[in-house]
Amino acid sequence: MKPQSMLFTIYGEYVRHYGSEIWIGSLTKLLGEFGLSEPAVRAAISRMLRQGWLVSRKVGNRSYYSMSERGKKRLEEAAARIYKVDTDSWDGKWCIVSYNIPEERRALRDQLRQELGWMGFGMLTTSTWISPNDLGQRVKELTESYGIADHVEIFYAEHLGWSDPRQLVKKCWNIEEINEKYKSFIDTYRDKYEELASKLRQNKDVPDSYCFVEKTVLVHEYRKFLFIDPDLPLDLLPELWLGKEADQLFQNYYQLLNPGAVRFFESAYEVAPS
């Protein structure tokens, strides 16, 4: 697991619920549970600072780090999708984003594509992306922040022809591949969940450090689906869709691990001075 990705998970799962700021010594102790050295943690923090995800504060000889506004927004978006509730039925409309960004701004164009994929858009053509979810406001905010509003058009409209909705889905997303990844997740974590549930029923001791590591890895692995699962409404999913089963397994295992994981985090966390 990459240190930077693990830091996102630590901040999203723990730090943002404890004032959003943490001492680097606490981070080093927590990430040490995953075999990460202090230099590796410091290097990852430096990268996140340069990329604008973190901000730092010095108190005496101690350094404290918190998520930037950009980072907080990303964590909130991720949490909303990981711990989602069932959405309303689909209204039959598509959010469409079309862009024509000059070659000299290619880096921004590539970044826009990456962000659209993160939001759950699928590529219909090279410069046209679609989603069955109403994400227009988020795209407007994104394009304004990148300074490319003059090169982007956003629509929320009905599709009149010719592919039916499920055909459009197949053109834009590899649903079979996503389903296979969900199956792999279920195969990996079903036995772990049942084993832990059995231990707890028998009142066997389960170390808090184990719960912390296992829960953090669980969230880290499940978070990967944010990059590949477009969060399609039920009307557009195949009959055999494993996403629902995987989500239920995730929620059940998470609830078993959470109390011990939080206790371990609190044992390493020190309240930042005001």
Rank of each mutant, 00 (worst) to 15 (best):
S5P: 01
E21I: 06
E21Q: 15
K29N: 10
G35I: 05
L36I: 06
S37G: 06
A43D: 12
L49F: 00
L49Y: 00
Q51D: 08
R57G: 12
R57T: 04
V59W: 05
N61L: 08
Y65A: 01
S68N: 08
S68M: 06
S68E: 10
E76G: 07
E76Y: 06
I82P: 07
T87R: 14
T87P: 00
D88M: 08
D88P: 01
D88A: 14
S89W: 02
W94M: 06
S98Y: 13
P102T: 05
A107R: 12
L112Y: 07
E115V: 05
E115P: 03
L116K: 04
G117A: 13
W118F: 15
M119E: 08
G122V: 11
T125P: 02
S127F: 07
S131E: 02
S131G: 05
N133P: 06
L142I: 01
L160S: 15
W162L: 13
P165G: 02
P165F: 14
R166D: 04
Q167V: 06
L168N: 12
K171N: 11
K171C: 09
E176G: 14
K181R: 13
F185Y: 11
I186C: 09
D187K: 15
S198I: 06
L200Y: 00
Q202W: 01
V206I: 08
L218Y: 04
V219N: 08
H220S: 14
K224A: 12
F227H: 09
L232C: 12
L242F: 13
K244G: 03
E245A: 03
A246E: 04
Q251P: 00
N258G: 04
P259K: 03
A261M: 10
A268C: 13
P273L: 10
